[in-house]
């Protein structure tokens, strides 16, 4: 198992390198002189020229990329053009907020999405089923920022129950988490439902019923674990995406997370921050994938056998 994890982590390296290369090159092609951005419009051409020399900006892009990678290995991802602070510490400062937000959304998706999906499948074509499918459809068709604004209007301004912006207490995370998780929740309901429906049709469910197992236990003990694989995938992917992808929502609710940092950096052409944020998201997704695959082996004994067998061979 450890060996498997090691292998997977090794495979991650070239992927991250590839992504960083592509992002580096694309950003290099966009107009704008970093030295000018750092020094501002009022600086003289001479001082800009000196700074360019200092930063090695006159070198070929490939050379600069390799320099970037070399520094990155030692933990130096460059400095923000705007604040002058190291990218890593900027990202680190934003991580807890993004993490709390993504966790909040995830919890909501899991505790609402999975049970609703299960009930929907167990009572297929019933009123409850129709109701949950309709809500899922509504959730997907609502634009995120609009939902965020509506929630803010209603719960903060009208009812004055929850704070609208900022990241000071856990209450501050409720509305943004709901907004961020809305789409994932809809996916989760539909995925759980279809996965459960698929499993319920299987022969071994009929076997369970033929043993005299009650319907509740048929669903919870016999069907759910088998339906879990696609559900775990959704949870993992959503979590990784939400960690870095809450750009619009973080901005709407004025949450200082990775997403709002990235948006701001893109607007101000703060290239090191943009690359740093994208690498962070890429790592988050890769690690999440790995975690999901490891959880798989606990859920499905067949996969565990495959992974352990693989290790014996190698």
């Amino acid at each position: 198992m450890l060996r498997y994890i090691g292998q997977r982590l090794l495979i991650m390296l070239p992927i991250i390198l590839g992504i960083s290369f592509i992002v580096f090159m694309i950003l290099d092609l966009t107009p704008g002189d970093p030295a000018r951005i750092i020094l501002g419009d009022s600086a003289t051409d001479e001082s800009v020229r000196v700074l360019r020399e200092e930063m090695g900006l006159n070198d070929h892009a490939i050379i600069r990329y390799f320099r970037y990678v070399k520094n990155a290995i030692t933990g130096d991802f460059g400095k923000s053009y705007r604040s002058g602070l190291p990218v890593l510490s900027e990202l680190k400062a934003r991580m807890p907020t993004s993490f709390k937000l993504a966790t909040g959304s995830m919890i909501m998706i899991i505790i609402i999405g999975i049970p609703v999906g299960i009930i929907s499948a167990a009572k297929q074509y019933s009123l409850l089923d129709t109701l949950s499918l309709t809500s899922a459809l509504l959730l997907t068709s609502m634009p995120n920022f609009w939902l965020g604004l509506m929630l803010m209007l209603f719960f903060s301004l009208k009812l004055d129950l929850l704070p609208a912006t900022g990241a000071y207490t856990w209450q501050h995370f409720i509305l943004p988490s709901i907004t961020l998780g809305a789409f994932g929740l809809a996916t989760m309901i539909r995925m759980t439902r279809s996965s459960m429906l698929e499993v319920i049709r299987q022969d071994y469910i009929r076997t369970a019923r033929s043993k005299g197992v009650g319907e509740f236990k048929v669903i919870t003990r016999h069907a759910l674990k088998n339906a879990l694989l696609p559900i775990i995938t959704i949870v993992g992917m959503n979590f990784a995406l939400m960690l870095g992808g809450g750009m619009i929502i973080e901005s709407t609710f004025a949450l200082p997370g990775i997403g709002s940092l990235a948006i701001q950096a893109i607007r101000t052409k703060d290239t090191p921050i943009v690359i740093g944020a994208i690498i962070f998201i890429a790592i988050a997704i890769s690690v999440m994938n790995l975690i999901v695959d490891i959880i798989y082996t606990f859920v499905d004994p067949r996969l565990k056998t495959i992974i352990t067998a693989e290790n014996v061979v190698k």
């Binding site: 299987q202 022969d203 071994y204 009929r206 076997t207 033929s210 043993k211 674990k225």
Partner: peptide, 20 residues
Amino acid sequence: RGNVISMIFQDPMTSLNPTL
């Protein structure tokens, strides 16, 4: 079911729960 009357199905490959 399972107590007074039991049933064996056609395909043993799919009759058992893979996760238990």
